[in-house]
Amino acid sequence: MKEYDDVKVIVEKERYAKVGIHKGMIGTILDPRRIEGDWLVVFDGEFKQDEDGTWYTTDIECEIAESDLIVVKEYKEP
């Protein structure tokens, strides 16, 4: 498991559910470090625009234990 790999959450846990992450969701590792067994995973959301016209996303960023993830698409540098 490494940065830019697409990973799937394989368990339902309260600490993930609290931020909207549930079993079966797929995200991308966006930090090279596994810290205390956790990867920083970002789950894609939608684009929205604020009142100033700035775009933002509803992406969810969450630290997830490696043991709770499987790689669904391994990243290979082109």
Partner: peptide, 26 residues
């Protein structure tokens, strides 16, 4: 019009910031 969007960064010591994600929450 300029394309304005939110980017996410991680702060490192010594005045360094590293991009985590190119499109993020407010």
């Amino acid at each position: 019009k300029p394309l304005s969007f939110c980017t996410g960064w991680m702060i490192y010591p010594g005045g360094k910031i590293v991009l985590t994600t190119p499109a993020t929450e407010l």
